[in-house]
Simulated scan of single mutants.
Amino acid sequence: MKINVEIDEELEKLEVLIRAKEWNEEVNQLMDRLKEKRRSYFSGTEDETRHVFKPEDILYLYTENKTVMVRTEEGRYRMKERLYELEDELPEEQFVRLSKSAIANLDALEKFEASFNGTLCVYFRNGEKEYVSRRYVSEIKQKIEGKG
């Protein structure tokens, strides 16, 4: 794929042109990526205080007693959104589903350990750990190996 960027001071709005020989899966993927709306900031509460953080500050998100929690280096915060809603708003190349109840930032991972029952145990930079459901093991491996 060839990428060109052209700066034109006459333009009022950003314009994107995709040139291809034919409409194919790669064009579809580019279109989907361009249409994605990602949030620059998220917020969560701790006691009565609302904290604001960027996606890259998130170590992982998980559910606890039917509440979505986010873990950052600074602390744990309660989120108002559901886990699947947050998953849709996080950069998919940076975040991966670990289980039905957890999503991890790949940049926050330190190591993996195989478990006796076919799952993985994921260790984060801060020393905490989460387990990966068998269902999500292959997706994580693909993303780690740069194929996903």
Rank of each mutant, 00 (worst) to 15 (best):
K2Y: 05
I3M: 10
N4P: 00
V5K: 06
E6D: 03
I7L: 11
D8S: 12
E10H: 11
E12G: 04
L14G: 08
V16E: 04
L17P: 00
E22Q: 11
N24V: 04
N24L: 05
E25N: 03
V27K: 01
L30E: 05
L30P: 02
M31W: 02
D32L: 12
R33M: 14
R33N: 13
L34K: 06
L34E: 06
L34Y: 09
R38C: 02
R38E: 02
R39V: 01
R39E: 02
Y41D: 10
Y41A: 09
F42D: 01
F42H: 02
T45H: 05
T45D: 13
E46I: 12
D47H: 14
R50F: 15
R50S: 15
H51T: 12
H51D: 05
F53R: 07
P55T: 11
I58P: 07
I58N: 10
Y60H: 15
L61H: 10
L61E: 13
E64Y: 13
N65T: 14
N65M: 06
K66W: 14
K66N: 15
T67A: 12
T67L: 15
M69D: 15
T72R: 06
T72L: 12
T72S: 08
E74P: 08
G75Q: 10
R76Y: 08
Y77R: 12
M79E: 13
K80W: 06
E81V: 08
R82N: 15
L86Q: 03
E89Q: 14
E89P: 04
L90Y: 12
L90T: 08
P91T: 05
P91A: 10
E92V: 00
E93V: 00
R97Q: 07
L98A: 04
I103K: 02
A104W: 01
N105R: 03
N105L: 02
D107Q: 14
A108S: 12
A108P: 02
F112I: 06
A114W: 06
S115E: 09
S115R: 02
N117M: 03
N117C: 03
G118S: 07
C121D: 10
V122T: 10
V122W: 00
Y123R: 05
F124Y: 11
G127T: 03
G127C: 06
G127R: 05
E128P: 03
E128C: 07
K129W: 04
Y131H: 07
Y131W: 04
V132C: 14
S133Y: 07
R134E: 08
V137P: 00
V137T: 05
V137D: 00
S138Q: 01
I140E: 01
K143Q: 08
K143D: 05
I144F: 08
E145I: 00
G146Y: 00
